[in-house]
């Protein structure tokens, strides 16, 4: 076993070990029970309710819950848009950065309100500290908390019987932020600061060259971008957001300086989505259901990590043909190291790529654009599966549960019985809503890509013509159309066309999935509980795990196979034929 696999194995063990304690804690929080943090956070929670005049016991129907969610997110969008457009007039802008253009402000506001964190802009040269903190970091918290709230309502659909209501959005949002995201982020931010991640309001500094003559007299030194990065990096990982404080994201030494910071950031990416599976099991009073979902997610994740590792370790035959040495030696880890941080090598780059694309986290520690065609394709495909392999905080699990509903429906058709899941009959309405959740993202991705590769405005900023350029556009829409946020990055995306089109993709991918999810919750909550009978499909068994995996893979594979054949698969064939 290579050191990289030992590292990955340790990572998975710690991740799974955290699922139960954190999942139990989150279940207590979402069920409104008293937790050990109550003496500290309880007064703050009650103050929030008093100031906002909210009665947390006021139960909401699903349309009311959805309207509250949409209004709150609209306010977040407007706040981020305004901060970007007015930043030149606002404090905490020591670099005196100008207002962001309207189309870029639209894209970024949509990106952070929807928990996507697609970044069409360059942070260091575009956004002041106030915009980064009051705009982006705040949205990192509340967009993730919105996902947790929608998931909590979704689970109540299964756990409640003959109920017209699914909870209170404001209470779920507040408790998710204060009890789950805030304490974890605070702890992680402090550890990151101890490791060397910067946290300062000081203006950028200029460092003198070690060898001035090598850079000419014109360059007085190198400008080092600074800022309150640690507080943003912590929640960007925990909230499966991913938007870097610096442009090179988690490859930057001020964001990710040490092996410990790297491990903890990786853990932060998947820890909440993983633990939410256990939370689900607790809330439906059958933890086996949560473990089954977690098993399905983990099996696909491990297969994809292995696939990316194998693709990158095999290197690029075209480079070998040109005489480049890609073999493992004392001075080189071997394989395809183009676009990878030497500190991380292939193992941690592959793990990071798989974890982030599985989890709708847009952060990167290597250039996905420089991965081998198959390595990059696996990362892209993980996104295209609908961000349900762990997925975004909250959104990943309700997406996966939509797949589970489809899986039990398919199984019900096979044996000729009315499908049921967790004691609730799955009928036409639930299937229509689940189908919308599963089919809308592929439509957004494929339609957006198709338009961009024929429209002159879309073609103008594809800087890699040919199959790789197509892959870049497909990746961009896959990322936006599934609220991931990472990029192949070779595409010039900060244009009115891409800012607009990707902004629309992010909006529909978030809210046109959350609304049907809440509709399912409302419909299921109103139903009576059906006792399990001889014809009930057990949904905690290895058989169901395999059925769920097959459902996810068939939808993902069949939908995107033609598009992937036009991009990364052709590029792979060209590469092994030494043609690229």
């Amino acid at each position: 076993m290579t050191p990289a696999w030992i590292e990955i194995g340790l990572y998975l063990v710690v991740l799974i070990a955290c699922a139960r304690p954190l999942g139990q804690f989150m279940a207590d929080v979402l069920e409104g029970e008293r937790t050990w943090l109550a003496p500290l956070i309880g007064p703050l929670e009650r103050a929030c309710y008093r100031i906002a005049r909210i009665n947390p016991a006021d139960e909401m129907t699903w349309p009311r819950y959805a309207i509250a969610m949409l209004l709150f997110n609209a306010a977040g969008f407007l706040a981020v848009y305004a901060l970007q457009r007015l930043q030149a007039l606002l404090p905490l802008n020591p670099q005196h950065l100008a207002a962001v253009s309207p189309d870029s402000a639209f894209n970024t506001a949509m990106s952070f309100a929807t928990n996507t964190n697609w970044q069409g802009y360059v942070p260091e040269t575009s956004l002041g500290y106030l915009t980064q903190m009051a705009g982006l970091t705040v949205q990192n918290f509340v967009s993730a908390a919105t996902g947790i709230a929608v998931l909590a309502a979704f689970i109540r659909g299964f756990s409640r019987r003959s109920s017209a209501t699914i909870g209170n959005f404001w209470a779920d949002l507040t408790r998710g932020t204060l009890y789950i995201l805030l304490p974890l982020s605070l702890a992680l931010a402090l550890i990151l600061v101890s490791q060397g991640v910067v946290q300062t309001f000081h203006p950028y500094r200029t460092a003198a060259w070690v060898e001035p003559s090598a850079h000419g007299a014109a360059a007085a030194g190198q400008t080092l971008a600074l800022g309150p990065a640690a507080s943003q990096v912590a929640i960007k990982q925990l909230g499966t957001n991913g938007g870097g404080f610096f442009n090179v994201n988690s490859a930057h030494p001020f964001e990710n300086p040490t092996p410990l910071s790297c491990f903890l950031e990786l853990l932060a990416i998947l820890i909440i989505p993983g633990a939410l599976c256990y939370t689900f099991g607790r809330m439906v009073r059958d933890t086996r259901q949560g473990w089954a979902i977690l098993a399905a997610m983990t099996l696909i994740l491990v297969a994809c990590i292995a696939g990316i590792m194998a693709a990158e370790e095999s290197g690029n035959p075209a480079l070998a043909h040109a005489g480049a040495d890609q073999s493992t030696s004392a001075g080189s880890p071997g394989g395809n190291m183009e676009g990878k941080e030497a500190r991380f090598g292939i193992g941690l780059s592959a793990l990071w790529a798989a974890a982030t694309t599985a989890a709708s986290n847009g952060s990167v520690d290597a250039m996905h654009d420089s991965f081998t065609p198959l390595g990059g394709m696996i990362a892209m495909w993980l996104i295209q599966l609908g961000e349900v392999i762990y997925g975004g905080v909250g959104s990943g699990l309700y997406g996966m549960l939509a797949f589970a509903i489809i899986a039990v429906f398919v199984a019900g058709l096979m044996v000729g019985r009315t499908p049921e899941y967790l004691g609730k009959k799955i009928e036409a309405h639930e299937m229509k809503m689940a189908s919308l959740i599963v089919l809308l993202p592929p439509f957004i991705v494929l339609a957006g890509t198709a338009c961009s590769v024929v429209a002159p405005s879309g073609l103008r900023t594809i800087f890699n013509p040919g199959v790789h350029g197509f892959s870049e556009v497909l990746y961009a829409f896959s990322s936006a159309g599934n609220n991931n946020g990472s990029a192949f990055a070779g595409l010039g995306a900060n244009t009115p066309w891409y800012n607009g089109a990707l902004g629309l993709a992010m909006f529909f991918a978030r809210y046109w999935l959350a609304v049907p999810a809440l509709a399912i919750a409302g419909s299921l909550a109103a139903k009576k509980h059906v006792p399990a009978g001889a014809g009930t499909l057990p949904t905690h068994t290895p058989l169901f795990v395999l059925l769920l995996i097959a459902t996810v893979l068939v939808v993902g594979a069949l939908t995107f196979a033609p598009a992937l054949a036009l991009g990364p698969l052709v590029e792979h064939l060209m590469m092994i034929g030494h043609g690229s």
Partner: peptide, 30 residues
Amino acid sequence: MDFVWLGVAGILWLITFGLIRVCERRDGRP
């Protein structure tokens, strides 16, 4: 240009409120 982009956002949110109504009507329950 701000009005254009904010207008686009406004339309997006409005049609999503419409989606809630559509899903509600298709629910089949009172």
